[in-house]
């Protein structure tokens, strides 16, 4: 079980260019819950994650973790959360295996092989990232979900470029995560098929 009980966001307001985004967005996610953020293009889904993680300044709003209001930039939130955004966050000059061992130096190589096998990427373990397709790159980026032990997952459009098999695999992995007491906040245009979620419209 994870040690995070709740993550509460209240009255978020972010300035992006000329306009204000997120207009007082508030929600609360408890351990074992999925929050699904939806909205039109440009509604501020990615902006929300960036503001939450401290990459963008907040005009207004508070974040509380386990009932405790965080002072930004919130190291305690960063140390508990795993963010996968639009950029894959992988070094293009390295191979798949080298990228994973850069992120998870404590993991044994056999663990990586298991995860890559599950994502049907075993054949590409020693391939350089330049040789991979967009979907395969996403798979490598998502492999971090299988390897990490962070309780809070922040996923910005995790289903982009994935095929049907992997979408259902990812949903199964999310189900495992929430049943273990994790929290998932994801932004997507697609609704989740098989999982209960709390819907937040921007």
């Amino acid at each position: 079980m994870y040690s995070v009980a709740s993550l509460t966001i209240s009255d978020f307001l972010v300035e992006r260019g000329e306009s204000d985004l997120l207009n007082g967005l508030s929600f609360s996610a408890r351990s074992g819950e999925i929050v699904h953020i939806s909205g039109a293009n440009g509604a501020g889904k990615s902006t929300f994650f960036k503001a939450l993680l401290g990459l963008l300044p907040l005009l207004n709003g508070t974040i509380s973790l386990n009932g405790e209001v965080l002072v930004r930039p919130a190291q305690s939130l960063l140390s508990k959360s795993l963010y996968i955004g639009h950029g894959v966050g992988l070094n293009a000059a390295l191979t798949v295996m080298e990228n994973l061992s850069w992120y998870f130096p404590e993991c044994h190589i056999s663990r990586f092989q298991l995860v890559l096998k599950e994502l049907s990427m075993s054949a590409f373990a020693e391939a350089q990232l330049q040789q991979l397709s967009a979907g395969q790159l996403r798979r490598v980026a998502l492999a971090r979900l299988w390897l990490s032990d962070k309780p809070i997952w922040l996923l910005d459009e995790p289903f982009t470029a994935l095929d049907q098999t992997l979408i259902s695999q990812l949903e199964a992995k999310m189900a495992d995560h929430i049943s273990a007491g994790g929290i998932i906040i994801l932004a997507s245009h697609l609704p989740l098929k098989s999982l209960p979620f709390q819907r937040v419209e921007l």
């Binding site: 894959v88 992988l90 070094n91």
Partner: peptide, 15 residues
């Protein structure tokens, strides 16, 4: 390249 790939974002968030 690190900027385009989102590696810099992950470095900032790495803790």
């Amino acid at each position: 390249e690190n900027y385009v790939d989102g590696v810099l974002t992950q470095l900032i968030l790495s803790g």
